[in-house]
């Protein structure tokens, strides 16, 4: 990947982070922490990896993306808006009555959303069903899903992994966002998930462990995913929850609360400074 490409993705990721802050601030609630941490992955998926067309959001052979950790909808909405699925300013209607931007993704309301999610553990199953159906019908699309490292405490996640391996779903990529935090504290203290990559390998996945803020590593992992035949692919990415807003970084407190006006100012100043720096590169 060229330096210019990486800078462009970093700009997109910063704009996604701004949308996350805008949306949760306007809603006075929501989940900024996990959304910010996954913003680089959202940018990579929506501006590099996924075969999608905002002008034809339902095109049959599009790649599917299922946000299994549905509470990070602000990050998904930011990516979709910037990619052209709907106006960026609509982010400010997040979680409001009448808005098509629900607290958790709703496929019947929001252009570009492939599956309604929010109840943890179910998105990966639905994504596996899509991948199976794609193989069955000869649809060349690929199916991607993003899970949280807290989410994988749900048993259904492992049912879905067994299913994906059993059906050799090599058109399926399950990404685990390993930010190490969940609502009640560090995952290592709440329910230690241990060696996630090792567990996924034991369940029949080919796995790449990457830095979830490094576009080169993402590129290499997705390339390897496409080359892997006969088994599903897992990406375990280490991330910093809340990345991009200094006071939210690595903080359990910012899982599910919105910035107040002063905090919003600070966050936007930081992100604007970052954006100016990137745009000057």
């Amino acid at each position: 990947m060229t330096k210019a490409e990486k800078t462009d993705l970093a700009i997109k990721a910063t704009k996604i982070r701004m949308a996350i802050v805008e949306g949760t601030h306007a809603a006075k609630c929501g989940h900024p922490g996990g959304s910010l941490g996954a913003a680089d992955m959202f940018a990579y998926l929506y501006f590099k990896e996924l075969n999608i067309d905002p002008a034809d959001p339902k095109k049959p052979d599009r790649d599917r993306f299922v946000l299994s950790k549905g509470h990070t909808a602000p990050g998904l909405y930011g990516a979709l808006a910037l990619r052209g699925f709907f106006p960026v300013e609509d982010i400010k209607t997040l979680r409001q009555i009448g808005s098509y931007l629900q607290g958790h993704p709703n496929m019947t309301l929001t252009p570009g959303v492939d599956m309604s999610t929010g109840s943890l553990g179910q998105g990966i199953s639905a994504a596996a069903g899509m991948a199976l159906a794609a193989k069955h019908t000869g649809n060349p699309c690929r199916v991607y899903t993003l899970l949280g490292d807290g989410e994988i405490e749900e048993g259904e996640v492992w049912e879905a992994m067994m299913f994906a391996a059993n059906y050799k779903l090599d058109n399926f990529v399950a990404i685990v966002d390993k930010n190490g935090l969940q609502i009640d504290g560090p995952t290592a203290e709440v329910m230690d998930s241990g060696d996630i990559a090792g567990k996924m390998r034991a369940f029949g996945f080919e796995v790449a462990e990457i830095d979830g803020h490094d576009f080169d590593e993402m590129e290499a992992a997705f390339k390897k995913a496409r080359e892997t035949k006969g088994k599903p692919f897992g990406i375990v990415m280490r991330t910093v929850k809340g990345l991009g807003v200094s006071y939210m970084e690595n903080s359990v407190d910012w899982h599910g609360k919105a910035p107040n006006d002063a905090e919003y100012e600070t966050a936007m100043n930081e992100l604007n400074a970052k954006l100016a720096k990137l745009e000057a590169m």
């Binding site: 299922v66 599956m115 639905a126 596996a128 899509m130 259904e156």
Partner: peptide, 15 residues
Amino acid sequence: GNMMAVAAGASTMGL
């Protein structure tokens, strides 16, 4: 549980 959500996903692909 997995089966029901798998079926849901499959239904979005025209099955």
